[in-house]
Amino acid sequence: MKAARRIPLMKKMLAQFGIEEERVRLDWVSASEGDRFAQLVNEMTEEIRRLGPFSGNGGKADD
């Protein structure tokens, strides 16, 4: 259950870095929910496509 606290805090912090909330998603899927898992992954993939590549964060070229 630590994830339930860590992820929201991480998302709040990432927003300060200009990383859109939608790039991080926390959800709960059990091993027997195969269809649901596939659906969530597809949704997330579409969302990321919509957002486009992350616009970069400076640093040296090898990052």
């Binding site: 870095f17 990383i19 616009s55 970069g56 964060n57 400076g58 640093g59 990052d63």
Partner: peptide, 11 residues
């Protein structure tokens, strides 16, 4: 790891 907030367009 992130080093900075994302830059508007390119760097």
């Amino acid at each position: 790891m992130l080093k900075r907030k994302s830059l508007p367009q390119g760097e």
